[in-house]
Design a protein around this nucleic acid. Structure first.
Lengths: 142, 142
DNA sequence: ATAGTTGCAAAAGGTTTGCTGCCAC
DNA sequence: GTGGCAGCAAACCTTTTGCAACTAT
């Protein structure tokens, strides 16, 4: 499903179609990265120089609330947004913050969660926490 | 392993034992909830009225870096801290933010992650995202 | 005695809110 | 024409930082 299609669907819920929203959603759907609001802002600004951060947050929140994107918070202050849930998992170093991809078959539990909870499940997130080899090798940890 | 024991171990790494740290760590180990820094602050303040938020953050970060607690960020602005990893999973509503426990057998992948990545794994976190039944039933979603 | 820690306050950074004008419908 | 949205700026909240006094070692 592409950006235009999603935005058309949302019209039924009183959400308006604007070119800024189209640009934001297209960017999110077209990347495998999990950009921050600020990164999205700078990207959209290339096409719409007048766009403001408030619009970015407004749109991201609207898309999240309607279940089209995921807001993923890592320890590092700013949230990241994901337009393509279900790609891969992460391992995060509790010391240096480094994020490593962890490739393994996706865990098949979304349907179980949906049945047991009654939620409409959009996706899941699996994250491992630990200390990376480099940080483990260092002497002073403070 | 209790708070005093953990803090004694950390002395080898140049970390000092202070009563504030003991109180913070004891609170985290003794609760199943995932308190925010501010909640910890208010709790510790009952015993140490002079304690400051800076000390809370300082201690939490130190404990995190040494792999004794987990910092879990949800969409809601402030981080939550967990002294007892590996208890259960969560389902988060993307609209209203409600967090529901999801009880199921723990997924046994920590060792696999440790072997494949070289990290010392402390624990993992599995979270489902969706729209809860109440929010799904409402008419206006904006 | 030394170096890490506390408490305080200021600063920083991300996100939200209020408002006016504008634009999609 | 109406109501939602854009843009802008101020406000807000969480977290970090700087520093002098203190204290565990």
């Amino acid at each position: 499903m592409d950006a235009i299609e999603i935005l058309k669907q949302l019209k039924d819920k009183g959400v308006r179609f604007t070119p800024q929203r189209q640009a934001i959603l297209e960017f999110l759907l077209g990347t495998e990265s999990h950009p921050t609001a600020d990164e999205i802002y700078h990207h959209v600004k290339a096409k719409f120089p007048g766009v403001s951060l408030g619009t970015i947050y407004n749109t991201l929140n609207m898309l999240k609330v309607h279940g089209h994107i995921l807001e993923l918070s890592y320890g590092d202050m700013s949230s990241r947004f994901d337009g393509n849930p279900q790609n891969h998992y992460h391992i995060v170093c509790s010391k240096c913050g480094k994020v490593t991809d962890f490739h393994r078959p996706l865990i098949d539990v979304d349907q179980e969660a949906e049945e047991k909870s009654g939620f409409s499940i959009i996706g899941h997130r699996l994250e491992f926490y630990g200390i990376c080899p480099e940080c483990n090798g260092e002497k002073r940890l403070n």
